[in-house]
Simulated assay, not measured.
Amino acid sequence: MCGDIARIYFYMADKYNLNLSRAQQQLFMAWHKQDPVSARERELNQRIRQHMGHDNPFVSGEQQWVLGYTPTGYGLH
């Protein structure tokens, strides 16, 4: 479950140009590694994509968070 939370934080930070501290990034990256994307999470992500037209790229694997990642703020446009 912690990995799910981490990927939600990654998504929100990237989409809305939010800054995560170094400690937050390290914690969330550890959670992501300890709790990989599950089949249930993939299925939910796919349903969200079908309904909303986009998904969480940190769940689908289209994007990876690395320490020092610069959020794009794509949701602000």
Rank of each mutant, 00 (worst) to 15 (best):
L44R: 11
E43I: 06
R7N: 06
G68P: 14
A39K: 12
G75I: 12
G53W: 03
R42G: 02
H77Y: 15
Y74G: 10
N45I: 09
D35Y: 12
M29G: 02
A23T: 01
A30T: 13
H54R: 15
M29I: 04
D55Y: 07
N17R: 11
N19E: 14
N19W: 10
Q24H: 04
Q46E: 15
D35K: 03
L18S: 04
Q26M: 07
M12E: 12
Q63G: 00
P36Y: 06
H32N: 10
D55K: 03
I8W: 02
T70A: 15
A39C: 04
M52N: 13
A13L: 09
S38Y: 06
G53H: 02
E43W: 10
T70H: 13
S21T: 13
H51R: 13
L67S: 10
Q34F: 02
D55R: 12
Y74N: 15
A13T: 09
P36N: 12
F10G: 02
Y16M: 11
Q63V: 06
I8R: 07
Y11T: 03
T70N: 14
A39D: 15
Q25V: 00
R7F: 06
E41D: 03
W31K: 04
E43L: 12
Y11S: 06
F10V: 03
Y9Q: 07
K33L: 08
V66F: 10
V37T: 05
L20H: 02
P71C: 13
G3Q: 00
L44K: 09
G53L: 04
Q63P: 00
A30G: 06
M29P: 01
A13Q: 08
P71K: 12
W31N: 07
L67E: 15
M12H: 10
Q26S: 03
H77P: 13
Q24P: 01
V37Q: 04
I8E: 12
T70Q: 15
G73F: 14
A13W: 02
W65M: 08
V66T: 12
T72P: 08
G75P: 00
Q46A: 15
N45A: 11
F28A: 01
I48S: 05
Q46G: 10
G73Q: 10
Q46C: 09
G75R: 11
Q34N: 08
H77T: 13
I5V: 11
L20G: 02
Q24W: 01
L76T: 09
C2W: 04
Q24A: 08
G75W: 09
S60H: 10
K33Y: 03
D14I: 14
D55S: 15
L18G: 06
H32L: 00
I8S: 08
Q25T: 00
G53Y: 02
L20M: 13
M29E: 04
V66C: 03
G73K: 09
Y9C: 07
W31T: 03
P57W: 13
R22Y: 04
G53D: 05
